Simulated scan of single mutants.
Amino acid sequence: MLEPDLTGKIALITGATGQLGRVMAHTLADCGADIVVHYHANRLQADKLVAELTRMGRRALAVQADVTDRDSVFAMRDKVEAVLGMPQILVHNAVIQYAWKPILQQDPGDFDSQYRSCVMQTVYMAQAFVPAMQAAHYGRILVINTECAALAEAGCGAYTAAKRGLDGLCRCLAKEVAEDGITVNQIAPGWTITERDRDANTQVQPDYDRQVPMGRRGTDAEIAQMAAFLVSDLASFTTGAFIPVCGGRVMPAI
Rank of each mutant, 00 (worst) to 15 (best):
D5Q: 08
Q225A: 14
L169P: 04
R210T: 11
Y39N: 02
S72P: 11
Q45E: 14
A41F: 06
P244M: 00
V250Y: 08
L142K: 02
I187S: 01
Y138D: 11
V67K: 03
R55N: 13
E52W: 08
V23Y: 06
E195V: 14
L142D: 03
V204G: 07
P213G: 09
H38R: 06
V50C: 14
V80I: 15
G190T: 02
M24T: 03
A253P: 00
T14S: 07
A29Y: 00
Y159C: 05
L44H: 14
Q127S: 06
Q134I: 04
D207W: 09
E3W: 13
V119L: 10
I89P: 00
G18R: 00
A150P: 04
E3D: 12
P206C: 07
V250G: 01
E52A: 10
G32V: 01
P108G: 01
L166V: 09
V130R: 01
D107N: 14
Q105M: 09
T146I: 01
D66T: 05
G240A: 05
R77D: 09
V83Q: 12
G215E: 12
I223M: 08
A221Y: 10
F237K: 08
A200H: 11
A200S: 15
I223R: 00
S117P: 06
N93P: 03
Q64F: 02
V177F: 10
L234D: 10
A178W: 13
L12S: 07
L2R: 11
F229A: 00
V95C: 11
V91K: 04
L28P: 00
F242E: 13
A178M: 11
C172I: 13
K163H: 08
F74I: 06
D167R: 10
S72I: 05
Q105K: 14
